[in-house]
Amino acid sequence: MTRSAAELLDTIRRELAPGESENRLVPLVAEGKADKAAIGALAAEQRRIIEADWRSFLTLAARSTEPASREFFSGLAGGEGLAKAKLTPLAAACGFDEAAIRDYKPRPGCQAYPAYVSWLALHSDPATAVLTLVANFAAWGGYCATIAQGLREHYGFDDEACGFFDFFATPVPELEEQALAAAQAGIDAGIDLSPAMEQGRLLQAYELMFWNTLAEG
């Protein structure tokens, strides 16, 4: 029997949920033990990631023939534009001005994630990519919430400096509703969404690589 989109998403999230010790940077920030330069590097890496993901999401929206998928990816692209503006005060709080961000040398371990999202934009069925991406949102949002709290408690960052992390830590139920509608439309159209599990596993691994590269740096 074909499982519903909600059942598939629950299965993917359950099987791919990262372990508590897999992300090495977030606990350091939570305890106030991370170097502020690592947070500045995160902002510089995210500037490049956002610009890449923005284009990838627009590409997926353009490839989507189903309205719910187009709406989902268009919404993600719009969110990237809002998030990009919040990186400047975060970087400034870490001592990174625009010149420092421009001159920053991105690390391969951090840029593997957007490279794979670009692969999804070109090669994944859009409905499958929806499940792949939304399955990772809960973990990413949790990381951002923990970092925002740690930056306030241990580093004295204000709301503006924490705005980037607050933005992604805030749940958006409508986004998941769109994702489920898009995935369900794919199932109803006979699309095999099972590759979402493999794609989700790779995406999660690349995200952990992002965090742990910064922790090692």
Rank of each mutant, 00 (worst) to 15 (best):
T2E: 08
T2G: 07
R3A: 09
R3M: 14
A5I: 14
A5H: 03
E7R: 05
L8C: 15
L8R: 15
L8D: 15
T11S: 08
R14F: 08
L16M: 08
L16P: 11
P18I: 12
E20F: 11
R24P: 02
L25T: 02
V26Q: 11
L28G: 07
K33Q: 14
A41T: 11
A41M: 13
A43Q: 02
A43L: 04
Q46Y: 05
R47C: 08
R48P: 13
I49V: 14
A52L: 12
A52S: 11
A52Q: 09
W54T: 08
W54E: 04
S56F: 10
A61Q: 04
S64K: 13
T65M: 04
P67Q: 04
S69C: 14
F72K: 03
F72E: 09
F73A: 07
S74N: 02
L76H: 00
L76F: 09
G78Q: 02
A85L: 10
A93T: 10
A93G: 07
C94A: 14
C94R: 01
E98Q: 08
E98Y: 00
A99I: 02
A100M: 04
A100H: 00
I101W: 00
I101Q: 04
I101R: 01
Y104M: 02
Y104L: 05
K105A: 07
P106E: 03
R107P: 00
Q111D: 00
A112Q: 03
A112V: 10
P114M: 06
A121V: 04
S124H: 01
A127H: 07
V130T: 13
V130A: 02
L131T: 07
T132A: 02
A135E: 08
N136M: 07
N136Y: 00
N136E: 08
F137H: 01
G141A: 15
G141N: 12
G141T: 06
G141R: 05
G142T: 07
Y143L: 12
I147Y: 02
Q149N: 00
Q149H: 12
Q149R: 05
L151H: 00
E153M: 09
H154Q: 07
Y155D: 03
F157L: 05
F157W: 09
D158W: 07
D158T: 06
D159H: 14
D159V: 14
D159E: 15
E160N: 03
A161F: 12
D166R: 01
D166L: 07
T170R: 12
E176S: 04
E176Y: 10
E176G: 04
E177M: 10
Q178C: 03
A179L: 06
L180T: 01
A182D: 11
A183D: 12
Q184T: 11
Q184C: 05
I187A: 02
D188K: 15
I191F: 12
D192W: 11
L193V: 14
L193D: 14
P195E: 05
Q199W: 10
Q204F: 13
Q204P: 01
Y206D: 12
E207D: 13
L208T: 09
L208I: 13
L208Q: 11
T213R: 01
T213A: 05
L214M: 03
A215N: 10
